[in-house]
Design a protein around this nucleic acid. Structure first.
Lengths: 195, 195
DNA sequence: CCCCTAGTTGAGTGATCGTTCTATTTAGGA
DNA sequence: TCCTAAATAGAACGATCACTCAACTAGGGG
């Protein structure tokens, strides 16, 4: 078990494949057999690393993918000095990534979150924690330019607009909603800075 | 087949139960056996009314529930003379309905839309049509107070904020995001009216 | 050399999936 | 009353589901 860091272990390959499939086709529609085949792992290995079964794997995937996406968005936002252009370029990057993945890779946990919200309390709490983490991160970022408590409202609106835009863009196979969301976010930010 | 209109037919009971289950737990997680049991219909009756099977039923449910929800939102918006209070009360009503259903009944098609966006072209197109219909309806409503093309951007942002707020509210079992979304929508409307 | 544990492997379990199929019942028009 | 089509009813099918389990391999410490 020493961490060689050189080759990707079975556990991580399973998590990566599960994250990809949950994101593209949802939690219920993804079978453990499919995850095993996609990752190249033996079927039994999934239960070796995740004794709790599918829900256990789902919990780990939600938290890991959630943290990774938070870092991705934080990096995209932090690049620019001007917050308005930063917001615009972040939505632009999201639109580009979505179109390049043939409208498959949007939010890593949104589909699963809606599926389990009323049916699996453990997974629901995992998605709640991820969304709260995202809002906290965005709140700290907006706090650089906007006083409380407007920073948190802006952060929440950013996540809501991004998630809603992902939904419309995937359904229509068109990046347009993401650009509209970016413009609306700029309008909200401007209103709170001048007011 | 004369339309008596007095008692609910089997076909409608099946559609209603399917709509409820798709909305609460998603498309893939809902079995036709469960729909038959919930609606009280015989299993074979589902295939009598929907010869195309589950996808056929899903298509009808998406379009019917989509039109019904459009009417619901249009009624909620059209009640007030002042557009700002109308928007606020609409998000308020959505928050109340969500909490009263124990955070189960949010958007009737969002979960299904994300599930099928990359896996079922027919159902994806059905969700695309519903979202386009909603945006068209909201565009006409905003057009009463805002010139083109801002009316359509406002309408798209309304749907995005509503969908994003539903997602966060269900995950956190908290109506807070819907109130924040309502306030942000008022801010956007105000910015476009004065600008 | 033996042990011990971590990890791998896939066959097998019962349950449930969507779907098909054949009867049977119902109801209105001729 | 008979005919026809709609609707009801559920058994059966093959496939797949999440999951269990026992056998197996690899490798480091005693």
């Amino acid at each position: 078990m020493p961490e060689t860091g050189q080759q990707v272990g079975t556990r991580q390959r399973v998590e990566d494949s599960a994250a990809l499939l949950f994101r593209r086709q949802g939690y219920a529609a993804t079978g453990l057999k499919q995850i095993a085949a996609e990752s190249g792992a033996a079927f039994g290995s999934i239960y070796h690393f995740f004794p709790g079964g599918k829900a256990d794997l789902g919990d780990h995937v939600v938290r890991r993918a959630g943290a990774a996406y938070r870092d991705l968005v934080a990096t995209a936002l932090g690049g620019d000095a001007d917050p308005e252009t930063a917001v615009l370029s972040m939505f632009d990057a999201a639109a580009r990534a979505l179109a390049e993945s043939d409208y498959a890779d949007a939010c890593p946990i949104a589909t699963l979150a809606l599926e389990v919200a009323s049916t699996d309390e453990r997974l629901r709490m995992a998605t709640e924690a991820v969304f709260a983490d995202w809002v906290d991160t965005a709140t700290a970022w907006f706090g650089q330019w906007v006083p409380r408590p407007a920073d948190r409202d802006l952060a929440t609106s950013l996540i809501m607009l991004l998630e809603g835009a992902f939904l419309l863009a995937r359904a229509a196979r068109d990046p347009g909603p993401l650009h509209i969301a970016g413009q609306s976010m700029v309008t909200l930010l401007r209103a709170h800075r001048s007011g």
